[in-house]
């Protein structure tokens, strides 16, 4: 059984609870162990970088230092956390003046970071450590009626092309095909969701998300699947507001890729946090209802 350190981040412990639930369930089903990083702190997301650069790297490096001491690769499901941790790692290496400040701060806090930590996204772990074949073999309920718009958002593939194309990635697309689902062609798959703009400059935030929703529907998708808590939140929690404003689109469920995997693996919906959907995927759930599976729920 392969073991990883797990960095949940603040959203995954709050509004993205279903992401954590489904991630843990799916990793367990694939014999992968996730150990939560002890006493992890907030990564700082994109906000911190706007206030103090060195501080943001130092605060983020605390997590890297803890992970390094434990020794396992650090898995971060939230795109913002994933990128901040990855960027901190790379900038410490690339810029001596950042390294100097970070070292100073960490030393004061009795921490050491040597630069050997490895930061990974669960999707990349599935691609490289598990492989499509093993995923396909684990499928119990092919998701034949799922027409998925695979939405990667931005920070998982940009600026670092760690495992896929920065504009047109297809790791998720391929996985969904192996699960028996259809991944529709979704050209806006890495177009930004606007991040926190829905909460700050709402008009722009809603419009940006409207574009993502309407494109998915135009392409015939019956759900949008994301890898990031912020994307999921924007597309789902603001959806009714968007629908009211632009009345040419219909409601569409927004799920995490781990929930999709879990459903295909036959993991009970309860363990995948499906009920935590504000827009419940009623029709999709009905389509995979099989009596004997039902009995196990």
């Amino acid at each position: 059984m392969k073991t990883y350190s797990y960095y949940p981040g603040c959203s995954v412990k709050g509004t993205a609870k279903q992401y954590e639930e489904s991630l843990l369930a799916v990793f367990e089903a694939l014999d992968l162990k996730l150990l939560e990083l002890p006493d992890w702190n907030c990564c700082g997301a994109t906000m911190y970088m706007s206030v103090d650069e060195n501080m943001s790297f130092a605060v983020s490096a605390r997590n890297l230092a803890i992970a390094e001491e434990i020794g396992f690769d650090l898995v971060a499901p939230c795109s913002a956390c994933y990128l901040v941790l990855l960027k901190t790692m790379k900038y410490i290496k690339e810029y001596p003046k950042i390294r100097e400040k970070v070292d100073k701060a960490l030393t004061a806090a009795d921490l050491v970071y040597r630069g050997t930590a490895r930061v990974r996204h669960p999707l990349e772990v599935l691609l490289h450590d598990v492989g499509f074949e093993k995923i396909q073999n684990r499928v119990r309920i092919p998701l034949r009626s799922f027409k998925i718009a695979p939405y990667y958002g931005c920070q998982i593939v940009r600026p670092y092309k760690e495992f896929d194309d920065p504009s047109f990635p297809n790791t998720m697309d391929q996985i969904f095909e192996y699960l028996g689902a259809e991944a529709v062609d979704y050209p806006v798959k890495t177009r930004c969701c606007g991040g926190s703009l829905t909460g700050t400059i709402e008009e722009v935030g809603l419009r940006i998300n409207y574009i993502l929703l309407s494109e998915a529907q135009r392409r015939g998708a019956n759900c949008i699947v994301t890898v990031c808590p912020l994307c999921q939140f924007n597309l789902e929690a603001y959806q009714r507001k968007i629908l009211k404003k632009y009345n040419d689109i219909k409601e569409i469920p927004i799920l995490y890729f781990t929930q999709i995997l879990g459903l295909a693996f036959g993991i009970p919906a309860k363990k995948l946090g499906i009920k935590r959907s504000i827009i419940f995927p009623k029709d999709l759930m009905k389509s995979i209802e099989i009596p004997e599976i039902q009995a196990n729920v």
Partner: peptide, 12 residues
């Protein structure tokens, strides 16, 4: 500068 939501599309 405030509308930039750090999607890194320009950078790549």
């Amino acid at each position: 500068i405030w509308l930039c939501s750090s999607c890194y599309a320009c950078l790549v």
